[in-house]
């Protein structure tokens, strides 16, 4: 139950530090939205180049929990689906591979927004 938690902690922490440096050292108009978009796109590109996979092997959740892991899964899904189904797979693969996350985000996001009120 506790295997790989140390590499997950270290790699996950380091990926977050990259995000922090991106916010603190670039221009002021960088918001959390920019950070999230950059990580998803970056993860997808690194995934396509085959550079993210080793990180997932070493660090498990340390690489899949940060949003770059979401991007990695999108790219990996698209490439695997192309391998199986050809051109149509480029369109279906990414969303298929991340469907659980997207559906969970919509459902839980909606549910919480309905049940709670902002506290300020």
């Amino acid at each position: 139950m506790f295997e790989m938690i140390i590499p997950a902690f270290i790699v996950g922490g380091l990926i977050c530090v990259i995000g922090q440096l991106f916010m603190d050292l670039t221009k002021v108009s960088v918001t959390p939205a920019h950070v999230l978009v950059t990580f998803v796109t970056g993860g997808a590109i690194l995934g396509a180049l085959g550079w993210y996979q080793p990180l997932v092997k070493i660090a498990g959740a340390g690489a899949t929990v940060p949003l770059s892991g979401f991007g990695y899964n999108l790219a990996k899904g698209a490439m695997e689906a192309v391998g199986k189904r050809g051109l149509i797979g480029a369109f279906s693969g990414g969303v298929e591979a991340t469907a659980v996350g997207i559906a969970a985000a919509v459902l839980f996001g909606y549910g919480v927004a309905i049940l709670f009120n902002p506290k300020g």
Binding site: M23, T31, P32, P118, K119, G120
Partner: peptide
Amino acid sequence: RLPTEHGSQ
């Protein structure tokens, strides 16, 4: 700025 519950520094 951002919604009140949005996490940011």
